[in-house]
């Protein structure tokens, strides 16, 4: 069993310093790794990123993160990623990392993702250059997620994004804004790349539970959705200690 803790949209800043730290005190009792599903800051500034770095530094389990749209707002996402990395947080964007655990290994592939909408109700790379750029960005990001999942050499794989791959976990959000909340191309990448679990944030009014068309479990861990410091998912059947399904 691999115990995965996850939270997104913590939106930290100077005014929220130390907000999560008390609840992370006993993290080791609950989980083997912690995933951060983007929107770690509010305005995407380095000052806020410093608060995030301190909040999640020196934890007893590995911490793997993607950035969200808020973390891009001040146009310094690379610097934010660098700062978090200095504090021992692995920041993914189109790549993956394998976490070695006692008798198990789990790979995490991460991208921020982007919008575009969902199959049959989405934008196309057609017409104005702005529209083409919008849709192509999602296509590129989804392609990187698929490749990153594909390259993971571990029995268990997790897809970590900020934007949603499915509409299930958007229930509660107005239908009109679905195209800004995610893209089915992410789900397609998750199904083709072969993930055991997909974790995302971004949809503050959404729902926790969903599934991709290919049957991969999707969890929206945006903090306003989960209403606690983090959620824990126990992934069974990937560490050799239990019978693998035939």
């Amino acid at each position: 069993m691999i115990r995965i803790a996850a939270v997104g949209d913590v939106h930290l800043g100077e005014d929220a310093r130390g907000r999560l730290r008390p609840a992370l005190e006993h993290l080791r009792d609950h989980a083997d790794l912690l995933l951060l599903a983007g929107d770690l800051t509010k305005h995407g500034t380095l000052a806020e990123a410093r608060v995030v770095a301190e909040e999640f530094a020196d934890l007893p389990v590995p911490v793997v993160a993607v950035l969200g749209n808020h973390d891009h707002h001040a146009d310094v996402p690379e610097e934010i990623a660098g700062l978090l990395t200095e504090h021992g947080i692995r920041v993914l964007e189109g790549d993956s990392t394998v976490v070695q655990l006692d008798g198990a290994a789990v790979g995490v592939a991460g991208v921020k993702g982007f919008g575009g909408g969902f199959a049959g109700k989405c934008g196309s790379a057609f017409g104005e250059p702005e529209m083409k750029a919008f849709v192509r960005h999602t296509e590129e990001v989804a392609g990187r997620l698929r490749d990153a999942l594909d390259r993971i050499d571990a029995p268990a794989r997790i897809a970590l994004t900020h934007y949603s791959p499915v509409t299930d976990t958007l229930r509660g959000e107005p239908l009109e804004i679905y195209p800004f909340l995610g893209s089915y191309l992410l789900a397609e990448a998750i199904d083709e790349g072969g993930a055991d679990l997909a974790v995302h944030g971004h949809a503050h009014f959404g729902t926790e539970h969903g599934t991709t068309p290919g049957g991969v479990r999707v969890r929206n861990v945006a903090q306003p959705v989960i209403r606690c410091a983090y959620k824990v998912y126990n992934l069974h059947g990937h560490d050799g200690s239990e019978a693998q399904p035939a």
Partner: peptide, 14 residues
Amino acid sequence: VVECREPSTAEELD
């Protein structure tokens, strides 16, 4: 104001 307590349960994914 969003709650920040430790989770009391885990979800089992088989």
